[in-house]
Design a protein around this nucleic acid. Structure first.
Lengths: 105, 105
DNA sequence: TTGACATGCAGTCTACTACCTGCGTATTAT
DNA sequence: ATAATACGCAGGTAGTAGACTGCATGTCAA
């Protein structure tokens, strides 16, 4: 349950976020497809994908010699639920206080 | 605008998330207050706070020799807006498809 | 069957990160 | 005025992360 850490760490790298974006744009891409257009060696991309997979942000399906990658949106949702919504409330409270202050003038 | 990276990196460390949580529980704490109960040297905490400040996740106000720290929920909201909501939609779509599949049975 | 293709495994190099310690400076309290 | 307090600055170290190269393995196609 406390694998929040892995998710945050996985998301902390811009290359990994781009990979997620690419998968979001078209799901089920292979490793070499994901490599194309990136200024990185295949091995680097592969490592990044491993990190994303370890964080459960993507899932993998083998099809012959090809490795297909799929986004898994669940961990991101959990991050939101367990971590962001709390701060969201404070933000809205702050906003509300700010408005009230304005109105009292 | 693309300082998303700094925010993600700042959030990637559990110590920094705990510091944010502590500030969320009680805003406006000083450095030494934030240090108390943590198994870390003051300097380490200070460095973490610098990272959070650089990511604009906290703001700082000097009062004499004391440094007061305040949470800034805006960047987290931006992360949500620009990065999470998108995946949220896909998650709901996936959920919807899943339900439809069940119903077709 | 042989060659091309998709990927994995292992090792290396560099840079950064998260710690620390020691010392310096400014502010408050006695 | 002096001591205690709150903090910053500089520097040092161990571990890790991100990139690479080279080679091995498994799969498909001619």
């Amino acid at each position: 349950m406390r694998d929040v850490d892995g998710v945050f760490k996985a998301l902390a790298d811009p290359s990994r976020r781009e990979l997620l974006d690419r998968l979001y744009a078209r799901n089920g891409q292979t490793l070499t497809e994901l490599c194309s257009g990136l200024a990185m060696a295949r091995q680097s991309v592969s490592q990044h994908l491993e990190v994303l997979e370890a964080a459960n942000l993507i899932s993998v399906e083998w099809q012959g010699r090809e490795k297909l990658h799929y986004v898994n949106p669940v961990p991101i949702h959990q991050i939101y639920e367990r971590w962001i919504r709390k701060y969201e409330e404070q933000r809205l409270t702050a906003l509300h206080n700010f408005k009230s202050k304005l109105e009292r003038k």
